[in-house]
């Protein structure tokens, strides 16, 4: 019995190593986040219009491949990813914007300065975008025939940006 006790550390280590092996080989990604909206229809949000720009109606976004981007003028990564959105819009994919918690005049100044890639824009001064599973700005959604096909949290730059653009190409 006392001898068995001396095997206890070995046994505990064996169990820990087993879980380690499982974790490494099961292909799980500890940093993966489950977007609550992927695979579902884009929820209908009651957004407010921005000046006289076309208003984004998320509930009636229509068919085809489209991109919805949540941004704010005070968000620096949004500035960084803006050229990517402009190039997506120039490639013929409609890009829509949701200005998140931003004063209208600031948003307009932002679009004046950096260019306006958005086919339609809505303002959200409240928490409606939480229905999109938003965890911060910027976030970008790929919408195919009214349903969310891909959700990129953070700027679509670097590796996450490449993943988003790949998903976009695949959808087209």
């Amino acid at each position: 019995m006392r001898r068995l006790l001396f095997f206890l550390p070995f046994a505990v280590f064996g169990a820990v190593a087993g879980f380690g092996l499982w974790a490494l080989t099961s292909g799980r990604d500890p940093n993966a986040f489950d977007s609550p909206v992927v695979g579902r229809d884009l929820p209908a949000l009651a957004l407010e219009p921005l000046a006289d720009l076309p208003l984004l109606q998320t509930g009636e976004i229509g068919g085809g491949v489209q991109v919805v981007n949540v941004f704010a003028s005070w968000c620096v990564p949004c500035v960084a990813e803006h050229p990517v959105l402009v190039s997506i819009a120039e490639s013929g994919v409609p890009v829509h914007g949701i200005a998140y918690q931003d004063a209208p005049e600031d948003t307009l100044a932002f679009l004046d300065e950096h260019g306006n890639p958005y086919a339609s824009v809505g303002r959200d001064a409240g928490r409606q975008v939480l229905e999109l599973g938003l965890s911060g700005v910027p976030e970008t959604f790929l919408v195919v025939d009214g349903a969310v096909a891909y959700h990129a949290a953070g700027p679509i730059l670097g590796a996450p940006g490449d993943a988003f653009l790949a998903a976009l190409d695949a959808a087209r």
Binding site: F6, F10, F13, A17, G20, L21, L24, T25
Partner: peptide, 28 residues
């Protein structure tokens, strides 16, 4: 890098597993 993970796990099994097994046999 999963490949590195597997390698270190192997190292762990040899070093920790081996020493604990040696302990179980010799320490009593």
């Amino acid at each position: 890098d999963p490949e590195r993970g597997i390698y270190i796990l192997g190292l762990l099994v040899v070093a920790i597993g081996g020493s604990l097994a040696l302990f179980a046999v010799r320490a009593p």
